[in-house]
């Protein structure tokens, strides 16, 4: 058997754009990843530390062969990645994981919190390409920590920005903004809620979607190593078909799961 899809790519940083003190968008020259990546998938990036760092894909520019990644600095490894400069090279595994499922949907509502708005931006991009009606809720702590507001606005979809500090459209969490949106929204069949962000926020979003009888997909996060399903360290607790709970791998069984199976 031959290696039918190369998984490791040596890629070059095309550009780096700092959004705020904690967040940077890296653009990589990675045509093979750009050609096949789906929203909700991630890549596993090499850095000077031992393990790779899994980062969700924020957008792809297929014709240019570029992949955009939103990097939030949470430790030394992500700090180093956020400091990469144009021309730097890094080893990338990907695209990895099961992303969001958009097949058959007529309307998508994305609900992102903090850096969770990055992978959902990719969802919005693909919805626009496929003509799926899409709305977005983006929640932040404050206007100062808000990211991608211009980019979401540029997509032309209806977007509601929420901030805990009360200095954006809605004062409160992303789930509060989602509630406001759902109250006003005329129902459309085949609507789904797609969410990514802090776990309590996603839990609140999933509960709300359930109240409105909307299917909900959540993108989970867990400490990871291989990213390809062999090491079993990124265990997520889920409800299996027989009702029992068990662990599935965040990296290959997810990171996107149906909210109904997640054990919060």
């Amino acid at each position: 058997m031959t290696c039918d899809h190369p998984i490791e790519h040596l890629v070059t940083v095309r550009s780096s754009r700092r959004l705020n003190s904690q967040t940077t968008v890296l653009t990589l020259e990675a045509p093979l990843i750009a050609a096949t990546a789906a929203p909700g998938q991630f890549v596993n990036l090499s850095c000077d530390h031992f393990l790779r760092r899994p980062i969700g894909i924020m957008a792809v520019l297929r014709h240019e062969g570029l992949v955009e990644l939103g990097i939030r600095v949470v430790g030394d490894g992500t700090r180093e990645l956020a400091q990469k400069r144009p021309g730097d090279q890094l080893s990338v595994l990907g695209p990895l994981g099961h992303g969001f499922r958009l097949e058959g949907l007529q309307r998508v509502i994305t609900v992102g919190g903090g850096s969770g708005v990055f992978p959902l931006f990719f969802v919005q991009q693909v919805c626009r390409e496929r003509g799926i009606d899409a709305l977005a809720v983006c929640g932040y702590r404050s206007i100062d920590e808000s990211i991608l507001r211009d980019e979401y606005a540029g997509l032309g979809c209806q977007t509601l920005f929420a901030a805990d500090a009360g200095d954006l459209d809605v004062a409160g969490h992303a789930a509060d903004a989602l509630k406001q949106l759902l109250c006003q929204l005329p129902p459309v069949p085949q609507t789904a809620v797609l969410t990514c962000g802090p776990r309590p926020m996603m839990q609140a979003v999933a509960a709300l979607a359930r109240d409105y009888q909307l299917p909900c997909q959540v993108s989970l996060e867990e400490r990871m190593a291989c990213g390809i399903g062999v090491c079993l360290v990124c265990a997520c607790q889920v409800r299996e078909a027989d009702g029992a709970t068990g662990y599935q791998r965040c990296c290959v069984d997810g990171p996107v799961f149906d909210a109904e199976v997640v054990v919060w």
């Binding site: 031992f50 393990l51 867990e222 400490r223 190593a225 360290v233 997520c236 662990y247």
Partner: peptide, 23 residues
């Protein structure tokens, strides 16, 4: 065997700790 509760990995200098627990 279901294995141990997460987190199951911690990076170290030049290596890693795992606590998968024979899942």
């Amino acid at each position: 065997r279901a294995g141990n509760p997460p987190p199951r990995v911690a990076e170290t200098s030049c290596g890693m700790l795992n606590s998968v627990g024979l899942q």
